[in-house]
Design a protein around this nucleic acid. Structure first.
Length: 770
DNA sequence: TGTGGATGCCTTTTT
DNA sequence: GGCATCCACA
C-alpha cells in the first residue's frame, strides 16, 4: 500500500481509521478527494468487498472521477462493483428493486423539476386557486421542503406549525395541493427528485426486513460533501449505518452554500452528537492558495457564529495582497477585469484558463462578456439551460417516457401536440378534466373516450385515435426493440426533424443537431453497456433511467480550453484557478437582497469564502458605485463582507479611470456596442441557451455541440456578396455571405436597421436591389 | 388553434 | 433589460 505514503499525518489517520464513525472536516484545498479515494482504496485492500461499500456524492461527475482515481490505485476491476454514485441514482436503484413494496413498478418515471412544476400548476388550476397567490414555484418549494423533512401528506395535515406558516403566507390550501400532487405522481407511476429520498426512507421505515437486508449488505458507508445533505439524506445514511456503524463523512461546514435546496448545515455540525463515538479529523493544511489568501479567508469565515472551529493554514509563499478595486460602473468593472487579464498574461506565464471571473448572479456575466469580446479575450460562460433541459430534447425524451410508462401524464401533455397534430389546449383540457374526475391517467381517458364520456367532435376524435395508435405501436416495441433503432424510428415516424426543417432560423438548425446528438448519445450508451456489461440488448428504458438523473454538469469540464472561465460562485465550488476575480461586491447584490436572517447572511458569507478560496495566487475583488440592474442604473454601496477581511491582507487600488460614466454615457456606450459588435450578435444567439457559451466556437465532443463549422461557400449565388437586397420584414440590407449548411442555402445579411441576420435562402423571399 | 403585444417578474440550482 | 406568461384576436 505504497499510496499511503502520499498522505500527510492527518490525512493518513483519517484514511486508516476504519472502525467507528468518522467526520473529516476538510478545509478548502486540503485534499478532501484524496482522503476519500485513498480511504476506499484502503478499505478494498483491507478485505472489504466492493459491493459492500457505499459511497455517496452529489454529482455524477464527482462519482465518476472518484471511481477513476480509485481504479488507478487498486485496479479497475475492483471499482466496478462499488456502490458509488449520487444519492439519487443509488437510491433510485434500490427503489426500482423494491418498487413493488411501495406501490410502484420498477420502471417508474422520474419527474424533473419542470414536470413537477407543471403538475403543481395544473392542480392549482383544478382547485380554482389564483396562480398569483398560489405561485407554483413557491408551492413547489413548500412541498419540496416538506418532503426533505420527511413530512408526508398525512403528517402535513397534522402539523400545526406548517399550516400556520401556510396561512401566514396566505396559501392555506397548500396541503390540499400537496395531497393531490402526491396522488397524481403515484397514479403516473412517477417520483420527483425528493421522492427518491422520501420513498427510500418510507421503505426502510415500513419494511424493517428490507432495511436489515441493506444494513447488512453495506458494510462501509462514505458520504462526500456532507455539509450539503438534507434531513432526508441524513436519515437514510443514519439508518443504513446503524448495524455496522462504519461510516465516514467528509465535508466542510464553511462551504455549505446550498440551503436553498434543502441542505442543512446542522447535519455536519451535529454529526458527533448523532453518531456515537465519532472520531473527528480536521484537514487544515491548504495546498492550494498563498498564505495571504488563506488568512484572509480565515478572518472572513471567523465572523460566522455557526461553524466548526479550525485553523486552516498554508505553507506556500505569503503571496500578493488581495486587491480591492472600486469602480464607478459595472462596465468599468468589466473593463478593468479584462485589462487585468491582459496585463497578467504578459507578466506571468499564464494561460487564459488560469483565470476565473466569479459573480453572485448569472446576469452579471453580460457586461463581462461584452468587455472580453471587445478585448479579444477568449472566454467561456458556464450556466444556462443544460442539454437535457432543452425543449426539443425534452420532447423526444417525453416520447421515450410515455411509451415506457403510458401513465406518465407530464410526458403525454408535452407531446400530444408535438409535432403539431391539431390537438390543442381545449381538447387537452377536456382530457385532463376527465382524468381528474375519474382519477385515472390521461392515457386511460385517451384510450377510451367513450367510456369516460369525453365530448369532442369527430375530427378531433380521429386525431386523438391516431395519436393513441402511434404511441401504442411504439409502446408494444419498447421491451423488444433496441433503444437506438426504436429511438430512430420514433423520430422519423413522428416527423420531429422535418418539423424543424421547415422553420428558418439558425436556432432551428441547432435543434436538429441536438436531436441528432441525442441519437448519438443513445448509440454510445448502447455500445458502452454492451461492451462493459456484456448485455445483448439495450432498451430505451435502460437509457431512460440513466439520463433522468443526468445533468450535463458531466460533459462541461472536459473542455478545458484556452479560455477564461466566467461562472457563478456556486458553480465554482470545488474548482481552483491561479487568478480569481470576484466582482460585484456590493450590498443588494452580494449579500443577496433575499438574504434576510442571520442564518441566510452567514450562508452568503460562506459563499464569499468559497469564492476567495478558489484562488491560488491572485485574488481581485471589486465593487462598483453603480450597476445596471433590473432595467435601470442603481447606485450601490460596498458589501459588508469587505470589512470582514483584515486590512493587512488587502490593498486598495485607486480608480484607474479618469472618465466618468453616467447614465447618458452608458446609453451611448450600449448603442455603440450593439452596432460595432453586431458581428457577434448571431454567434451569441446561437449559444444563448447553451450551458457553455464561448467566443471561440471550437468544436466540442460534448452533447451540446452546435454545428457551425460545416459551411461551404456558394459560388455564383443569385445574391453575391456585397449586393443589396430588400426583405419584407427587415428592410434594406447588404449581403455579407452565402453558404451551404446541411444542404440548406444560407444567406447572411447586414440590415442597417435590424442588424445582422442569417436566413434560409428558400424562405427569405429577397428582392435584389440594383 | 396559433400569434403577438401587453404585463409582471426577477438569486444561487449538485439531483 | 429580457424572458415567460397570458389574454385578445385572426
Amino acid at each position: 500500500m505504497d499510496f499511503l505514503n502520499e498522505l500527510n499525518t492527518t490525512q493518513y489517520e483519517a484514511v486508516t481509521h476504519i472502525d467507528g464513525p468518522s467526520l473529516v472536516i476538510a478545509g478548502a484545498g486540503s485534499g478532501k478527494t484524496r482522503v476519500l479515494t485513498y480511504k476506499i482504496a484502503y478499505l478494498l485492500e483491507n478485505g472489504f468487498s466492493p459491493v459492500s461499500i457505499m459511497a455517496l456524492t452529489f454529482t455524477n461527475k464527482a462519482a465518476r472521477e472518484m471511481k477513476d482515481r480509485i481504479g488507478k490505485l487498486v485496479g479497475f476491476n475492483n471499482t466496478r462493483y462499488l456502490w458509488m454514485g449520487t444519492f439519487h441514482s443509488i437510491f433510485s436503484r434500490i427503489l426500482r428493486a423494491e418498487a413493488e413494496h411501495i406501490g410502484y413498478t420498477k420502471d417508474f418515471t422520474i419527474y424533473d423539476t419542470a414536470d413537477s412544476r407543471s403538475l403543481i400548476k395544473s392542480i392549482i388550476k383544478e382547485l380554482q386557486l389564483d396562480e398569483k397567490v398560489y405561485k407554483p414555484n413557491n408551492i413547489q418549494g413548500r412541498i419540496s421542503t416538506a418532503k426533505n423533512n420527511l413530512i408526508t401528506v398525512e403528517a402535513y395535515y397534522k402539523n400545526r406549525d406548517l399550516q400556520l406558516s401556510d396561512s401566514n403566507a396566505r396559501v392555506p390550501r397548500t396541503k390540499e395541493i400537496y395531497a393531490l400532487y402526491a396522488n397524481r405522481c403515484k397514479q403516473a407511476n412517477a417520483m420527483d427528485f425528493d421522492d427518491l429520498l422520501l420513498q427510500t426512507n418510507l421503505l426502510f421505515q415500513n419494511y424493517p426486513e428490507i432495511l436489515e437486508k441493506y444494513q447488512s449488505f453495506f458494510q462501509y458507508i462514505l458520504v462526500d460533501e456532507y455539509q450539503d445533505t438534507n434531513f432526508s439524506q441524513y436519515l437514510i445514511v443514519k439508518k443504513l449505518a446503524e448495524r455496522h456503524n462504519k461510516i465516514c463523512v467528509v465535508g466542510d461546514d464553511a462551504q455549505s452554500i446550498y440551503s436553498f435546496r434543502g441542505a442543512n448545515i446542522d447535519n455536519i455540525l451535529n454529526f458527533q452528537k448523532n453518531f456515537q463515538n465519532t472520531k473527528i479529523f480536521k484537514l487544515e493544511q491548504n495546498y492550494r492558495s498563498t498564505q495571504t489568501i488563506v488568512n484572509a479567508a480565515n478572518c472572513l469565515i471567523d465572523k460566522n457564529s455557526s461553524q466548526i472551529k479550525k485553523k486552516v493554514f498554508s505553507n506556500k509563499d505569503k503571496g500578493m495582497p488581495i486587491q480591492l478595486n472600486s469602480v464607478t460602473s459595472d462596465i468599468e468593472e468589466a473593463t478593468y477585469v479584462a485589462n487585468k487579464v491582459k496585463e497578467l498574461m504578459q507578466k506571468e506565464t499564464y494561460d487564459y484558463s488560469d483565470f476565473a471571473v466569479l459573480y453572485r448572479t448569472n446576469s452579471q456575466s453580460r457586461v463581462m462578456e461584452e468587455s472580453f469580446r471587445k478585448k479579444q479575450i477568449p472566454y467561456q460562460i458556464y450556466g444556462g439551460v443544460s442539454f437535457y433541459q432543452r425543449k426539443e430534447i425534452k420532447n423526444v425524451i417525453a416520447y421515450f417516457r410515455l411509451i415506457t410508462n403510458l401513465n406518465d401524464d407530464e410526458a403525454l401533455k408535452r407531446i400530444i401536440n408535438y409535432p403539431i397534430r391539431g390537438i390543442g389546449n381545449v381538447t387537452l383540457n377536456k382530457l385532463i378534466e376527465a382524468s381528474n374526475l375519474h382519477n385515472v391517467s390521461i392515457w386511460s381517458i385517451l384510450d377510451d373516450l367513450l367510456k369516460y364520456n369525453v365530448n369532442v367532435n369527430s375530427g378531433t376524435a380521429r386525431k386523438l385515435a391516431n395519436f393513441r395508435d402511434l404511441i401504442q405501436g411504439f409502446s408494444l416495441k419498447v421491451m423488444e426493440q433496441e433503444a437506438y433503432d426504436l429511438a430512430t424510428e420514433i423520430i422519423k415516424t413522428t416527423g420531429m426533424l422535418s418539423d424543424s426543417l421547415t422553420k428558418k432560423s439558425v436556432e432551428e438548425l441547432s435543434r436538429i443537431d441536438n436531436i441528432q446528438e441525442l441519437i448519438k448519445a443513445i448509440h454510445e450508451y448502447t455500445e458502452n453497456k454492451k461492451q462493459e456489461e456484456g448485455v445483448e440488448k439495450v432498451l430505451l428504458t435502460d437509457f431512460l433511467s440513466e439520463i433522468s438523473l443526468a445533468t450535463d454538469q458531466d460533459t462541461d469540464a472536459e473542455d478545458e480550453k484556452e479560455r477564461v472561465t466566467l461562472m457563478t460562485i456556486h458553480a465554482a465550488k470545488g474548482l481552483e484557478f491561479k487568478t480569481v476575480f470576484i466582482v460585484g461586491l456590493e450590498e443588494q447584490l452580494f449579500p443577496s437582497p433575499f438574504a434576510q436572517t442571520t442564518r441566510d447572511l452567514e450562508e452568503e458569507r460562506r459563499l464569499f469564502y468559497v469564492a476567495v478560496t478558489r484562488a491560488e495566487q491572485y485574488c481581485f475583488l471589486s465593487y462598483s458605485k453603480s450597476r445596471f440592474k433590473n432595467g435601470m442604473v442603481q447606485f450601490c454601496n460596498p458589501s459588508r463582507f469587505l470589512s470582514d477581511i483584515d486590512k493587512e491582507y488587502i490593498e486598495e487600488v485607486e480608480p484607474q479611470f479618469s472618465n466618468h460614466f453616467n447614465s447618458n454615457n452608458r446609453q451611448w456606450q450600449n448603442k455603440s456596442n450593439s452596432n460595432q459588435n453586431n458581428s457577434f450578435a448571431i454567434e451569441r444567439n446561437k449559444f444563448r441557451d447553451r450551458t457553455v457559451s464561448s467566443y471561440t466556437s471550437s468544436p466540442k465532443k460534448s452533447l451540446k455541440k452546435i454545428n457551425v463549422n460545416e459551411k461551404q461557400p456558394i459560388e455564383n449565388s443569385e445574391f453575391p456578396t456585397g449586393c443589396f437586397v430588400k426583405h419584407k420584414v427587415f428592410g434594406l440590407g447588404k449581403v455579407l455571405e452565402t453558404y451551404l449548411s446541411d444542404n440548406n442555402e444560407m444567406i447572411v445579411i447586414d440590415f442597417s436597421e435590424k442588424g445582422k441576420k442569417s436566413l434560409l435562402m428558400k424562405f427569405a423571399k429577397l428582392e435584389k436591389m440594383e
